[in-house]
């Protein structure tokens, strides 16, 4: 078994128009920036994206949204230091937004990966977020029914991975990544380091390889916060057109 792929473009090549794609990360931390940029390069559009946020600046998820590839966003917090990519499209009515409380978002994704179609949570009871959802009392307290969330693809970031897709993460870059790995039909991971089978201690593996389909190494990943400080823009404005774009 070897899940290692040689290039980012190969790794995302199966993602087509209309797909539901979960994107890991919390802000820039744990966000698979290079995979998102490779997804932009494919031209895939009409995507439903699941992420905690809505991008920041002009790179990563913000660039995917600005390039009009996203028709619906499911997230908890679409604000950031520089949210203009999302804000402009949202206020123009060009992107649908489903706001989900952060813990509910995490649990819906976990449930999707764990085969649990619905669950009850105290979160959002009595608020407009709960409107239209079934409510039930348990031990005298009211809880709101929430449904699982699943995806066609997840693109996530880990620190180290092996050919079987076993993963460990780095610091708070873990966040939604292990949950999204479970909840998609096809999970694509960018790792800082591909390591030999057996190099990861089985006691410390966070995501077992069964949840992973493709691993691609990005040994010096870029960081959204740093790119934004530099005023970076993706795709680069002065870059020559790729063959793909030239032919389109």
């Amino acid at each position: 078994m070897n899940k290692i792929q040689s290039s980012l473009s190969e790794a995302v090549s199966q993602i087509k128009d209309g797909a539901t794609v979960m994107i890991g990360g919390f802000g820039g931390s744990g966000a698979p920036l290079e995979l998102i940029h490779a997804l932009i390069d494919t031209g895939a559009k009409d995507l439903t994206i699941v992420n905690n946020n809505a991008g920041n600046g002009d790179v990563g998820l913000a660039a995917l949204i600005r390039e009009a590839r996203v028709s619906k966003l499911i997230c908890s917090f679409p604000r950031s230091a520089d949210p203009k990519a999302f804000s402009e499209r949202y206020l123009a009515g060009k992107i649908e937004l489903e706001i989900v409380p952060q813990g509910t978002l995490a649990e819906r994704i976990r449930a999707g990966g764990a085969g649990i179609p619905a669950f009850y949570t105290p979160t959002s009871f009595g608020t407009e977020v709960a409107e239209g959802k079934p409510v039930e009392k348990f031990e005298g307290r009211s809880y709101v029914q929430e449904r699982w969330l699943k995806a066609d693809f997840s693109i996530i970031k880990a620190f180290k991975g092996d050919a079987m897709g076993n993963l460990i993460y780095r610091m708070a870059g873990r966040n939604f990544n292990p949950l999204m790995a479970m909840a998609a039909k096809h999970t694509i991971v960018q790792v800082n380091h591909v390591v030999e089978l057996g190099a990861l201690d089985p006691e410390t593996i966070v995501t077992p390889g069964i949840f992973v389909n493709s691993v691609v190494e990005v040994s010096n990943p870029q960081q959204e916060e740093i790119l934004n400080r530099e005023g970076a823009y993706y795709p680069p404005l002065n870059a020559p057109l790729s063959n793909n774009e030239a032919g389109a």
């Binding site: 908890s76 937004l97 952060q102 813990g103 979160t123 959002s124 977020v129």
Partner: peptide
């Protein structure tokens, strides 16, 4: 405007 809830609804209920 643009709604944003984050983790507040979870925190207040738990």
């Amino acid at each position: 405007g643009i709604p944003a809830v984050g983790g507040a609804m979870d925190l207040v209920n738990g």
